[in-house]
Design a protein around this nucleic acid. Structure first.
Lengths: 231, 231
DNA sequence: CACAAAGATTGACCAAGATCAATCTAGCCT
DNA sequence: AGGCTAGATTGATCTTGGTCAATCTTTGTG
């Protein structure tokens, strides 16, 4: 049996960075102390303000990280898919989590005590390096999110989102949204209504053609790109 | 002479985390290859979209990180003071910087080739650990920033900012702003006008009393806190 | 000390999105 | 297949904060 591979077809820890940099003995130790979790849609995996003692790695499924606000409404700041992890920063710093995490659908994950992660950093330089890159990437991604949410107009945000789904350099493409329209709207820090309005304007202008529920045909991507940049 | 201490009274690299975790020989090597920089107010230290090959550590002074937008306007996302560093994420990931960095006043810094940082991570676990914490903190801080900027109303943002300047638990306090009102407004993602209006409303409501240019007397902090939470 | 220049305040107006409410549509379930 | 329900769309209206412009104030500086 390959290390930790219980469910064939599902990701194994030893394939997921930064854990793929650990040697066999080390990873076995980690897996021995890790707790496998399963969550159904809507289950809360981490409450905001909790100080998590574990890092949570998603093996399969999808987890949404939501930033609560005093006024009750919550904003989606991150979607965590297989191979990705969350609660890292809070766990490493031993500070309260800012976001809550909730399963967006049936999800299986691995809960890894942060103590073991600290140890792994001490003992395996390659792991430390990979972890560094992961954290740097998280920070970078946050910055992208800020840019998206506070700098751009609604039109720009939607245009940018669509463009980024198309293969690089293409002029037209058939794409599918990778979530509900409401979810995407939330990611872009827009209400579903506004998102819908912007989309339908694009359709009216002939930049986009609806293709069923989640699909759309992007026509004239360069023009979309222009809309993302200046409008 | 202590390692790298050229200007007495100014921070030395060996006192700054994560570099304080390096042994003497290692830190000397770093200092030998680091380039000391001096910048006056307004000088650009890093252009957005450049891929920095160095990590920049501020020894003295202040650097502002600004996120450019297609529409020309730039938003302040971070203030870097002595002992802090910037361009880390982009340099580590070898990706283009998202923000530009500009000296807010006379500043002296140290430019450290990211290659050496990678080496240090490989060879000194304690350094790797400290670097991890630093990156995690950066990510955490970004999240706080997002929360502040997209979740809260202008009133909430200002109230929160003021409260956080007061000593914990006090009911009234004499505080001083640590930057221009315009700069603070920018940090809170507000225009100077809006910031001013909110402040003057607080004054009108008797929550705050102006005390000269940058000082203010906070009265009834619990009420301010309430304003931050619910208004 | 006076004056220049940057910063701060105040007012009038505007625009982008949010909100509320009313349909409409597409999956999806026995 | 036929309805049921969550999701999506559309319209009317409102609120918030931004913009533009005028004035006031503080702070350096010659």
């Amino acid at each position: 049996m390959s290390p930790g591979q219980n469910n064939p077809g599902v990701l194994c820890l030893s394939e997921i960075p930064p854990f793929d940099r650990l040697e066999s003995a080390q990873i076995h130790q980690l897996i021995d102390h890790a707790r496998p979790l399963r969550a159904e849609r809507g289950e809360i995996l981490l409450q905001a303000d909790d100080t998590p003692g574990n890092i949570l790695v998603v093996l399969d499924g999808e987890v949404h990280c939501l930033l609560p606000s005093p006024s009750g409404s919550e904003k989606l700041i991150r979607i965590v898919g297989p191979g990705d992890s969350f609660a890292e920063e809070a766990a490493l710093l031993a500070r309260p989590a800012l976001a809550m995490a909730i399963a967006a659908r049936s999800t299986s994950l691995l809960s890894i005590p942060v103590l073991l992660v600290h140890e792994a950093i001490q003992h395996e330089p390659a792991f430390a390096e990979a972890m560094n890159l992961r954290l740097a990437a998280a920070s970078y991604q946050m910055m992208v999110h800020i840019q998206l949410c506070i700098q751009l107009s609604s039109t720009q945000r939607v245009a940018q989102y669509l463009v980024q789904l198309a293969p690089r350099g293409a002029e037209h493409a058939e794409i599918r949204l990778l979530a509900d329209k409401q979810t995407i709207a939330a990611q872009l820090n827009l209400t579903p209504e506004t998102f819908s309005r912007v989309l339908s304007r694009f359709v009216r202008e002939g930049l986009v053609h609806p293709r069923g529920r989640r699909g759309m045909l992007l026509e004239r991507i360069s023009e979309l790109r222009r809309a993302a940049a200046q409008d």
